[in-house]
């Protein structure tokens, strides 16, 4: 799979970006010292993109993704999410964006251990008034089926393999039917066979219309993306 994967963007030929970052700087204040992690980052991400963010450890990839995810605010610069300035949004409005429009996938899966696979998957639904309680179970089962885990619905995370846990996390990311999926090194804790399966899953999601942004160390993984953003020392290169 050395050839670049063609994303939906090429097919859609859309011109208005979903996400638009311009002149983003991020500075952490550490006592007396200011630590600048991102320098003047500008990015456009379009509907249907499959973007890979690559770069050495400590270069600021996660920091950038957190800003894109509406989890963190930049020190300066503007970020337009679906045409709206995130800088003007309250914390609760940002929570709502994360709940309904973004799905999260982490390196360490981040499932809640005392809850079953299904309960973990439907957790985001509790935080929105958009979904009826009676529909939770069906929506959860549907997403677990999409990731091929229909057989493991009642299992707890510690009863699942790493790959299976990551599938549960992907099902959770899909449950509110968001437009965007963000993944921070989703295959970092998995063996290469399982990594391929997870990447295949992400590609299929992209085919079905999701915009995907994933951080990766793995060049082979990065090459499967339609677009690669390289970061070094907090700058896009």
């Amino acid at each position: 799979m050395a050839f670049p994967y063609r994303s939906q963007r090429d097919i859609n030929m859309s011109n208005t970006p979903l996400l638009e970052l311009s002149g983003i700087n991020k500075i952490y204040k550490m006592g007396q010292i200011d630590l600048q992690v991102l320098y003047d980052v500008s990015l456009h991400i379009y509907n249907g993109d499959f973007v890979s963010i690559v770069g050495p450890s400590g270069s600021g990839k996660t920091t950038l993704l957190n800003i894109i995810a509406c989890l963190d605010r930049p020190t300066s610069g503007t970020y337009n999410f679906f045409g709206e300035d995130v800088g003007l949004k309250s914390n609760d409005e940002m929570s709502e964006i994360r709940n309904l429009r973004i799905g999260f996938i982490f390196q360490s899966f981040n499932l809640i251990p005392r809850h079953t696979a299904l309960e973990n998957v439907i957790m985001p639904l509790h935080y929105s008034s958009r979904f009826k309680n009676s529909s939770f179970k069906d929506l959860g089962l549907e997403c677990l089926e999409k990731v091929g885990l229909s057989e493991r619905v009642g299992h707890y995370p510690n009863e699942l393999s790493g790959g299976q846990q990551q599938r549960v996390a992907i099902a959770r990311a899909l449950v509110t039917n968001p437009e965007i999926i963000l993944a921070d090194e989703p295959t970092g804790n998995l063996d290469s066979k399982t990594s391929d399966d997870i990447m295949e899953l992400l590609k299929n999601l992209n085919k079905s219309g999701k915009t995907i942004i994933t951080i990766t160390h793995d060049n082979e993984v990065a090459e499967q993306a339609s677009e690669i953003i390289k970061i070094k020392d907090g700058r896009v290169i």
Partner: peptide
Amino acid sequence: TKEIGIRITIGAKSRD
């Protein structure tokens, strides 16, 4: 703490 972080990330508001 971690669980709370996960919940906030996936959309829990302060009041939740």
